[in-house]
């Protein structure tokens, strides 16, 4: 048994037996094999291999296999975590963004305004501050009562969320009363 020199056809012989060739290719192989003794013998050999293994195939119990398959549960409506929390995520992003903008505005207000490099004058208003405290010239100029009142006000401010104030906390530019 020798090998045909037509490698292309020989490569197709297993596919010919498997029935996976197109009609055109199938006819091409059939035509070649009809006139080529080597390929006819090789095709016969491959076919014998297939027959031998088909006969010796270990039996399988299809029903037992199907019974062992995992049962397909009804598919629950699965929503991704991201989708189910979309509103919360959007709210958090908005909150952080607005907070960042507020901070940027406040900083630019403190640092970007000509002549207002330091918060010399501050008016603090809040729940604990019915009466605005005003001071000028720095902390060293405050009296004991003023400092006490300011610390009390600061304690109440810490609990407030960081949001953009409706009005700038600073009033005026430059020192007051100096």
């Amino acid at each position: 048994m020798t090998d045909c020199s037509n490698v292309e056809i020989r490569e197709l012989l297993p596919d010919y037996l498997s029935g996976t060739l197109s009609d055109a290719r199938r006819n091409e192989v059939r035509s070649h094999v009809a006139s080529c003794q080597d390929c006819a013998e090789e095709l016969e050999l491959l076919n014998l291999v297939r027959q031998a293994y088909a006969e010796a195939t270990p039996p399988v119990n299809v029903n037992a296999i199907v019974s062992a398959l995992p049962k397909r549960a009804a598919r629950p409506v699965v929503r991704s975590w991201r989708r189910s929390h979309a509103f919360q995520i959007a709210a958090a992003v908005s909150f952080i963004t607005l907070g960042g903008i507020s901070l940027a505005v406040a900083r630019s207000f403190f640092n970007g305004t000509p002549g207002a490099t330091t918060p010399d004058t501050m008016v603090v208003a809040g729940p604990a501050f019915d009466t605005p405290i005003s001071f000028a010239g720095g902390v060293s100029d405050l009296g004991d009562d003023d400092i006490e009142a300011l610390l009390t006000a600061l304690e109440s401010i810490e609990a407030l969320p960081v949001t953009e104030p409706s009005e700038p906390p600073m009033t005026g530019a430059g020192r007051q009363g100096s």
Partner: peptide, 20 residues
């Protein structure tokens, strides 16, 4: 579920031949 049976019928013998 019948599709599962059809899939097993289509491939079980080839797999058994290969494993053998």
């Amino acid at each position: 579920e019948r599709a599962a049976t059809a899939l097993v019928e289509r491939h079980a013998t080839a797999l058994s031949r290969y494993v053998g």
